[in-house]
Nucleic acid binder design. Structure first.
Length: 412
RNA sequence: GCGAAUGUAGCUCAGUUGGUUAGAGCGUCGGUUUGUGGUACCGGAUGUCGCCGGUUCAAAUCCGGUCAUUCGCCCCA
């Protein structure tokens, strides 16, 4: 440690940015609660196996992005790289299957050892929702509707698009994968080196390659939709019908896949064009196999997570520190009286600031910069009469008000 | 993990072919008759020029390394 700085890919959250984060989390929580979800907080680290066994042995997250550490007892622990595995672990360990369905939301820091960029850091914040125990398309529709409602509830600049696809059940997915691999092997020479590697590790990823040569090959590749079996097709159809019914705009993207192994059936993303290479702002999908894979009874599940930092960067306007009133004593002789009035307001829940130094003019300037609605001026004359000058800073009007009437005046 | 760019006051940046005490705007602080803002004027403060090393009589300026950031790839929220 040579210099006082945060470690690579981490940052201090304060001021405008912290307020933006709070605002987003507040709105997301409100939406989640409207949909009947409850908050859960799980530890930010788990036994390494919780992630390593379930996200996919060959996934990038597991092979090169986890922050693993050994505790003093020799246990291998990992800072959570995502939220779902921890929530599902909790679902099993806490015996929540006694009361299905389980509807949970969470938010907090996640950790991935990645190369930092705009919209990508090593410690970042996610908000997520999980709905466990519902097999029907109702769950998909509900969870996507919540995501859609939430993103639209935020005041974002730039276009946001919901993209959706179905990976089908395991049978459909395996069939498709075999066909895709066969096709890609026929065209092996035309593929980029990255895609040759993907072919080995996660063939579906070749579908959303950005390489131009790959794109032309992918154009003619077998289509996912053609390999879904009847049940999977019907399921996806019902999900889309539900979204139509709720007037949720979406775009079916047959090349949309997921990086983590546990997804099946419905997968979806909300993307934007204003964050460079980090276009995905929210992503999720169904994970009908995960609970069983982690040792619980076979139970359906679906959820999503969004990156708070990415959303915060898209917010149209800065969130200002809220101040309703600023107390301005005319001089140090009435400082105590001014503090007393401030205390009365504060204990009534009115956000009240005070100015600490300067002449009247300076104090007024500060009140103005604080964006306060009212300046409350107190001098010796007012103290004698048990009044204050209540000045509306938006309108520029002011009047003398009894201290005992002050709260009523402000609250209107 | 790969490729490229950048790094000067709190912020945004200027700094000519290396040459005295490194600048501007914004912000901040103080003042302009010690009771009134959002649109005035005057003045002040602040920088180990990211860090370490090298070349040179002399480096913010050239070279190497390092750290951090940004862009693209990989991947992902």
């Amino acid at each position: 440690m040579k210099k006082l700085q945060t470690v690579r890919g981490t940052y201090d959250l304060y001021g405008d940015k912290k307020r933006a984060h709070n605002e987003i989390i507040k709105k997301a929580s409100k939406v989640a609660q409207s949909f009947g979800f409850e908050e859960i907080e799980t530890p930010i680290f788990e036994f390494t196996n919780v992630f390593a066994r379930n996200l996919g042995e060959t996934s990038d997250i597991v092979t090169k992005e986890m922050y693993c550490l050994e505790d003093r007892g020799g246990e291998s622990l990992t800072l959570r790289p995502e939220g779902t595995a921890g929530v599902v672990r909790s679902y099993i360990s806490e015996g929540m299957q006694q009361n299905l369905p389980v509807k949970l939301f969470y938010h907090g820091p996640m950790f991935r050892y990645e190369r930092p960029q705009k919209g990508r850091q090593r410690q970042f914040t996610q908000f997520g929702m999980e709905l466990i125990g519902v097999e029907t398309p109702q769950a998909d529709i509900e969870i996507i509707a919540a995501a859609y409602n939430f993103v639209n509830y935020l005041d974002l600049g730039g276009n946001v698009v919901v993209e959706i696809n179905s990976l089908g059940d395991k049978e459909s997915r395996d069939n498709y994968r075999d066909e895709l691999v066969a096709y890609l092997k026929e065209n092996l020479d035309g593929l980029s080196n990255d895609s040759k590697e993907r072919l080995e590790k996660n063939p579906l990823r070749v579908l959303d390659s950005k390489d131009e040569k790959d794109k032309t090959i992918v154009e003619n590749a077998p289509k996912f939709g053609d390999y879904l079996n009847a049940e999977s097709k019907e399921f996806f159809k019902l999900v889309l019908e539900g979204l139509d019914r709720l007037n949720i705009e979406y775009k079916v993207n047959e090349r949309l896949v997921r990086g983590l192994d546990y997804y099946d059936h419905t997968v979806f993303e909300i993307t934007t064009d204003c964050l460079g290479a980090q276009g995905t702002v929210l992503a999720g999908g169904r994970y009908n196999g995960l609970v069983e894979q982690m040792g619980g009874a076979k139970t359906a599940g679906i959820g999503w997570a969004c990156g708070i930092e990415r959303l915060a960067m898209m917010l149209k306007e800065d969130i200002k520190k809220p101040v309703e009133a600023v107390i301005i004593p005319t001089g140090s002789d009435v400082m105590l009286e001014a503090m007393e009035v401030a205390y009365i307001l504060r204990t009534s829940g009115i956000i009240t600031e005070q100015s600490y130094t300067g002449n009247m003019k300076k104090r007024m300037i500060k009140a103005d910069k604080m964006n306060a609605k009212y300046a409350i001026i107190i001098g010796a004359d007012e103290v004698a009469k048990e009044t204050v000058i209540l000045k509306n800073l938006d309108e520029g009007t002011q009047k003398e008000v009894k201290v005992s009437e002050l709260i009523k005046e402000i609250r209107g």
